[in-house]
């Protein structure tokens, strides 16, 4: 399946969960937020929320700012 991850199209295997995606990317669960098609996914659902073809995913965190 193809997903749009932080604005970039990427190929991923079917049935990938958010937890699986984060592990694959080497991103810790703490201090990030994940949005799928503009809906925030609570951390408790990372294991069970499976991604679908065409999903638009945003993974954000805190950076320096005023």
């Amino acid at each position: 399946m193809q997903i749009v991850l932080n604005g970039e199209k990427t190929e991923q295997k079917d049935g990938l969960s958010i937890a699986g995606l984060l592990t694959q990317l080497g991103i810790g669960l703490e201090r990030v937020a994940v949005e799928v098609n503009l809906d925030i996914v609570p951390k408790a659902s990372y294991d069970t929320h499976l991604l679908s073809d065409g999903d638009r995913i945003e993974i954000v965190h805190f950076v320096g700012g005023g």
Binding site: L5, N6, I27, V60, F62, V63, G65
Partner: peptide
């Protein structure tokens, strides 16, 4: 302290 919310850099 203030922080901004931005995309995670996928290049870890």
């Amino acid at each position: 302290i203030t922080v901004a919310v931005r995309r995670v850099n996928l290049d870890r």
